[in-house]
């Protein structure tokens, strides 16, 4: 008996190019996340084992995303990812050179994870358009949340009676961290729109998520909001003018 195979319709070029950029960023971003946890683990022997495990989980996410991309005819755009991640890597290297464990933990555990969680959460409702991605992103999302839970617990204990010190640290790290990762959020906004997500919703979710993390370690709600919105406004204004943030 003859069988009729229905091939999926080719994606519009704008969607194809956008999903290749987004997947590139997700895959190589996960590799950078693994690197950050490994570097942080090198600085604090008591956390080496745990953070090496976190790094392995992040590397797995990248591998899952690559496999799912290939299965969907998506060639991750490495050049785009490298452009977006270069600024982050230079910050990470600077924090590592300064042996600044807490700065690395905030950059990765709060700022980078906020972008990952906001975008992965928003991707799941449309993931069935790319078979195999729902499972990969769903599990990655659960694990990112687990990492963030640990980071929150670590920071709460570390700054239990020193919230002002945490504020000083967060404000210092955020100057470049939010400029970098928030800037990436703005730069990918149109690509998110092109694949059927909402870049603006993801940006709002990232801002809200990051604000809540600051609150969880001791910022007052209004202070946290004021701080995060103040950091994002210049990025939002650049976006409105059609300027790239990096």
């Amino acid at each position: 008996m003859d069988t009729v195979t229905t091939l999926p319709a080719p994606r519009p070029q704008i969607e194809q190019e956008s999903i290749e950029k987004l997947m590139g960023l997700a895959i190589f971003g996960e590799k950078v996340a693994a690197k950050i946890y490994l570097l942080a683990g090198e600085l604090r022997p008591e956390y080496t084992s745990l953070l090496t495990q976190f790094a392995r989980m992040e590397a797995n996410h990248g591998a899952w995303f690559l496999e799912a991309s290939r299965a969907n005819g998506i060639e991750p755009d490495r050049a785009f990812a490298d452009r977006e991640l270069g600024y982050l890597i230079s910050q990470v290297d600077a924090h590592f050179a300064a042996r600044d464990f807490d700065a690395l933990i905030i950059v990765q555990g709060f700022i980078v994870e906020s972008l990952a969680i906001a975008t992965y959460e928003s991707f799941l409702p449309i993931a069935d358009r790319y078979p195999g991605t729902a499972r990969a992103f769903g599990q990655a999302l659960d694990e990112e949340r687990y990492h963030v839970d640990w980071v929150v617990r670590y920071l709460r204990l570390r700054y239990f009676d020193a919230v002002d010190d945490f504020r000083t640290l967060a404000e210092r790290v955020n100057v470049h961290g939010i400029d970098c990762i928030g800037g990436t959020m703005m730069n990918i906004s149109e690509y998110l729109d092109n694949v059927g997500m909402s870049g603006a919703y993801c940006a709002g979710a990232m801002m809200d998520g990051y604000t809540r993390l600051l609150e969880s370690v001791g910022f007052e709600q209004k202070d946290a909001t004021k701080h995060v919105v103040g950091m994002f406004m210049p990025l939002i204004r650049k976006y409105r003018r059609g300027e790239k943030t990096k």
């Binding site: 909402s198 940006a203 709002g204 979710a205 809200d208 909001t225 939002i236 409105r240």
Partner: peptide, 28 residues
């Protein structure tokens, strides 16, 4: 934004949705 969110939360507006709206509108 800090004051707006506080007012809206007190009136049972979903915080995530409100922040997303605010961000969208500011992004044009």
């Amino acid at each position: 934004a800090a004051e707006l969110i506080a007012v809206c939360i007190a009136l049972d507006v979903d915080r995530r949705k409100f922040v997303a709206f605010l961000t969208s509108a500011l992004m044009g």
